[in-house]
């Protein structure tokens, strides 16, 4: 059986990752034939946000769902879980366990929070004949999502409450995920991460006779700016990264997108080795607004129609406000993307 693994990645806290997860789960639940696996790279399903102190959406699971969560999650959940395996992967909340839900209820989900461990946990989950595995995200974290096959990106006013700015940023993100897949040729120079100007200089010193530069890890933001200054040396060559996520983690995505546009203008071909598809976007008009007087947060909202229109007009993927329209359309997109073999 082919198991589809999707990740729910947010641009910030409170952009609707858990809500999106819940809506997708609700669609899965309607189809009794589907076996679901669930994990998270963060900490989801708690009552109160760890940072803002505001109430959070909860995750409800039903019997048969397979979960990969830290041991301590089970103590604070109302759902009952039969532990199938205690893995060696330690988190601040104890070791990750694989378990099957035996009694439905609320589940706090904190799973493996780094790529290497997520990969191994997903491999274990895969062995249980699951149709779909959902990896819920955390805050603005995205690095471990390199292990999933398709992403639902959630964004909203909690990221930026100025809609035009948010729409532009979302456009940049979707663009970064659209960079082409490029092959590594024989005359390629490969480097690990580039995290200083010295390492940029070292790279530039090796460019003679090579047509392609492959950065296996990440490039730091300052290093990237330094590289742009010397970009003419790279002209006519390919600059390849492992996947779009390595670009997302560099820094401010508008700036990164702009820098890559400059590099392209200077005749450098930018690409990735592995494509990660954004299946759809979900948007959330909610944001926690800081109150100076009481040093706490209150729930606030931007105009939801305007938010939808501006973002939908700037991206090439479907956009959903799942709270308004439910999860059916989004789930259909997941199925379609699956059919097109992610």
């Amino acid at each position: 059986m082919q198991t589809i693994i999707i990740g729910i990645a947010g641009t910030a806290k409170n952009t609707g990752k858990t809500t999106t997860t819940s809506f997708i789960m609700a669609e899965v639940k309607k189809n009794e034939k589907l076996n679901l696996g669930l994990t998270s790279i963060g900490y989801d399903g708690e009552d109160i946000d760890n940072v803002t102190g505001l109430p959070k959406p909860k995750i409800e699971v039903w019997p048969g769902v397979l979960v990969a969560v830290a041991e301590k999650c089970l103590k604070v959940s109302t759902a009952e879980v039969e532990v199938l395996e205690v893995t060696k992967f330690a988190t601040p909340l104890g070791k990750i366990i694989l378990g099957k839900v035996t009694k439905g209820g609320r589940l706090v989900v904190a799973g493996p929070n780094k790529s290497s461990e997520l990969r191994q946990v997903l491999n274990k989950l895969r062995q249980h004949n699951l149709n779909l595995i959902i990896v819920d995200g955390a805050l603005n974290r995205i690095a471990p999502m390199v292990e999933v096959e398709g992403l639902i990106l959630t964004t909203g006013a909690a990221r930026k409450s100025k809609i035009s700015d948010l729409a532009f940023e979302t456009h940049c993100m979707v663009e970064v995920f659209s960079y082409p897949v490029l092959d590594i040729e024989h005359n390629t120079v490969s480097l690990n991460s580039i995290l200083s100007s010295d390492e940029v200089d070292e790279l530039l010193s090796q460019l003679e006779k090579v047509s392609t530069v492959y950065i296996k890890g990440v490039i730091g933001e300052k290093s990237l700016m330094y590289l742009v200054e010397k970009a003419e040396k790279l002209s006519g060559k390919k600059l390849i990264f492992p996947d779009p996520i390595k670009l997302m983690v560099i820094g401010d995505i508008n700036k990164i997108h702009n820098v890559f546009a400059q590099l392209k203008q200077k005749g450098i071909e930018i690409g990735v080795r592995k494509h990660i598809k954004i299946i759809a976007l979900t948007i959330n008009p909610y944001y926690p607004k800081y109150r100076f007087n009481s040093d706490d947060y209150e729930a606030s909202y931007v105009n939801k129609e305007k938010l939808y229109q501006e973002i939908a007009s700037k991206v090439s993927v479907n956009v959903y406000n799942v709270v308004e329209e439910g999860g059916a359309g989004l789930f259909q997109d997941i199925i379609s993307a699956t059919d097109n073999s992610l």
């Binding site: 806290k13 780094k114 790529s115 603005n140 991460s193 983690v249």
Partner: peptide
């Protein structure tokens, strides 16, 4: 110390470390 946007800043650090292969 936590403050405005610090959670995101820390998460970004972890992401960069993860993508750079440091977490392994």
């Amino acid at each position: 110390t936590l403050g405005y946007g610090v959670a995101e800043l820390l998460a970004r650090f972890v992401d960069l470390a993860d993508a750079a292969g440091l977490r392994e």
